[in-house]
Deep mutational scan, measured.
Amino acid sequence: MISLIAALAVDRVIGMENAMPWNLPADLAWFKRNTLNKPVIMGRHTWESIGRPLPGRKNIILSSQPGTDDRVTWVKSVDEAIAACGDVPEIMVIGGGRVYEQFLPKAQKLYLTHIDAEVEGDTHFPDYEPDDWESVFSEFHDADAQNSHSYCFEILERR
């Protein structure tokens, strides 16, 4: 099963200049909980913004210009990325925008964090048809001392 995991502000903004323009430790914990011990696929820009392999996960970098870091697996196509994951129950696609666009048609599940923030962004989550998805989990949280904005975790499964 292919799943996408993303944090989205208003207007589906997911990033600005290779960074997330908010401070939500709870979302980072949600991300870790849902990706640990699963292969993660990301684009080169996302890889560069993280700066290191995510521990406890097979890191697969999709790029037309593969790098030389041998701590991760470099691939040039969506099919190659899927094959590099091996026989696993769930593959997690973690961004960025172009990689989400490439995998959305193949995805069966979306793990979304909806952030109540209007922020400037240069990267967006692809538009998706809500009628194609069923919400199977939703959990709202107010902003607090650690988390700069209110947010809602949601899991959607393709109908």
Rank of each mutant, 00 (worst) to 15 (best):
residue 100 Y to C: 07
residue 19 A to E: 03
residue 42 M to W: 01
residue 52 R to N: 07
residue 68 T to V: 08
residue 120 E to R: 15
residue 68 T to P: 12
residue 135 S to C: 06
residue 159 R to A: 10
residue 87 D to P: 12
residue 118 E to H: 15
residue 126 P to R: 11
residue 140 F to S: 14
residue 84 A to N: 10
residue 117 A to F: 00
residue 69 D to F: 07
residue 147 N to V: 03
residue 158 R to A: 06
residue 153 F to H: 04
residue 148 S to M: 00
residue 56 G to W: 07
residue 18 N to G: 04
residue 33 R to L: 05
residue 121 G to Y: 03
residue 150 S to Q: 02
residue 116 D to C: 15
residue 32 K to Y: 04
residue 136 V to Y: 08
residue 74 W to V: 12
residue 150 S to L: 03
residue 44 R to Q: 05
residue 137 F to V: 13
residue 155 I to Y: 06
residue 18 N to L: 13
residue 69 D to G: 10
residue 39 P to H: 15
residue 132 D to G: 10
residue 52 R to W: 08
residue 155 I to V: 06
residue 159 R to E: 14
residue 87 D to K: 10
residue 109 K to H: 14
residue 29 A to R: 03
residue 53 P to G: 14
residue 19 A to I: 10
residue 68 T to D: 13
residue 34 N to V: 05
residue 19 A to C: 12
residue 20 M to T: 00
residue 34 N to Q: 14
residue 68 T to N: 07
residue 130 P to G: 13
residue 105 P to K: 09
residue 70 D to P: 10
residue 73 T to E: 09
residue 114 H to I: 14
residue 155 I to L: 06
residue 109 K to R: 11
residue 146 Q to D: 09
residue 47 W to H: 14
residue 140 F to I: 14
residue 56 G to Q: 05
residue 102 Q to C: 11
residue 103 F to L: 03
residue 115 I to W: 03
residue 83 A to T: 10
residue 93 V to A: 14
residue 51 G to V: 11
residue 85 C to D: 05
residue 64 S to N: 11
residue 32 K to M: 02
residue 139 E to T: 09
residue 45 H to K: 02
residue 12 R to I: 03
residue 12 R to K: 15
residue 111 Y to N: 03
residue 12 R to N: 14
residue 20 M to Q: 02
residue 67 G to A: 12
residue 48 E to M: 10
residue 44 R to K: 13
residue 55 P to L: 09
residue 97 G to Y: 01
residue 99 V to L: 12
residue 29 A to C: 02
residue 148 S to I: 01
residue 125 F to Y: 02
residue 159 R to I: 13
residue 45 H to W: 03
residue 37 N to F: 11
residue 46 T to S: 14
residue 111 Y to S: 00
residue 4 L to T: 03
residue 102 Q to P: 06
residue 13 V to I: 08
residue 47 W to R: 13
residue 33 R to K: 10
residue 18 N to M: 06
residue 124 H to G: 14
residue 138 S to K: 12
residue 32 K to S: 05
residue 82 I to P: 03
residue 135 S to E: 12
residue 50 I to Q: 01
residue 46 T to A: 01
